[in-house]
């Protein structure tokens, strides 16, 4: 009996050790190697494939970055200037000219920038007036305060995007194409930079700059004829 017991116990022991080794191998965390907050930055751009971006010559942009959410959140306005300057530089590089007096002259498109002060669920449409209603430039187009923005048709995208707190959202909307029956204003291009203003202050500036530049790099159709 002794050799049989020895054989059985040795086999069971070997099997148990193999199971233990395999379970350790299988269950330990799958390390992506992404550790810093910047490793989790994501830049998303969507566009209306029926828009003629080459025909755009001028744009208007309010001189402020809206706080999208229920309150101002924890974000001060340290980076607002940087965001607006970086957007202006990239739009200029695309060949678009900024209209400094849109109230009198209008513009082909309006570019709006906002930072989420809470997790922000963007559905197909959302009200804009709460955030940019104060902008004097709207006077050229008339009173669209009851209108909603709506994003480009995006088959397969689902019903909404969710941006975490500290995300930078930039939209390019075609106010000249407002639908008076549906009371909607189309967004022809949008960029979302998820979580860009989260984390320590160190590096936020370069992440903003890099994120905005990437949004334009992956949108080569933004170019005036």
């Amino acid at each position: 009996m002794r050799p049989q017991l020895l054989r059985l116990s040795s086999t069971i022991g070997a099997a148990a050790l193999i199971i233990a080794a395999a379970l350790v191998l299988c269950s330990c965390g799958l390390d992506s190697g992404f550790n810093s907050i910047a490793d989790f930055d994501v830049v998303v751009t969507i566009y209306d494939d029926e828009a003629d971006f080459g025909a755009i010559q001028t744009y208007a942009m309010p001189d402020s970055v809206a706080r999208l959410g229920e309150d101002e959140g924890d974000f001060d306005r340290t980076y607002d200037r940087l965001i607006l300057d970086e957007l202006a530089a990239n739009l200029e590089a695309a060949g678009y000219v900024r209209e400094e007096d849109p109230e009198a002259n209008g513009a082909d498109v309006v570019v709006l920038a906002g930072v989420t002060s809470a997790d922000w669920h963007v559905w197909i449409s959302y009200p804009w007036y709460d955030y940019w209603g104060w902008y004097s430039g709207w006077g050229y187009w008339g009173d669209y305060s009851g209108y909603n923005y709506y994003y480009p048709p995006c088959p397969g995208c689902g019903g909404s995007y969710t941006y975490t707190t500290g995300s930078l959202l930039v939209t390019m909307e075609d106010r000249n194409a407002a639908d008076e029956d549906e009371e909607t204003i189309p967004i022809i291009w949008a960029a979302g930079m998820n979580g860009l203003l989260e984390g320590s202050t160190a590096g936020i500036g370069s992440r903003i700059t890099g994120g905005i530049e990437q949004a334009f790099v992956q949108s080569p159709y933004l170019e005036a004829d």
Binding site: S32, V44, T45, Y47, D49, P152, P153, N194, Q214, Q218
Partner: peptide, 21 residues
């Protein structure tokens, strides 16, 4: 299986850039 990668990827009517796991 697992893999970490990064780059720009096409989505319907747009693109997305970042690190993927």
């Amino acid at each position: 299986f697992n893999e970490a990668t990064s780059g720009t990827f096409e989505i319907p009517n747009g693109h997305i850039t970042g690190n993927q796991h």
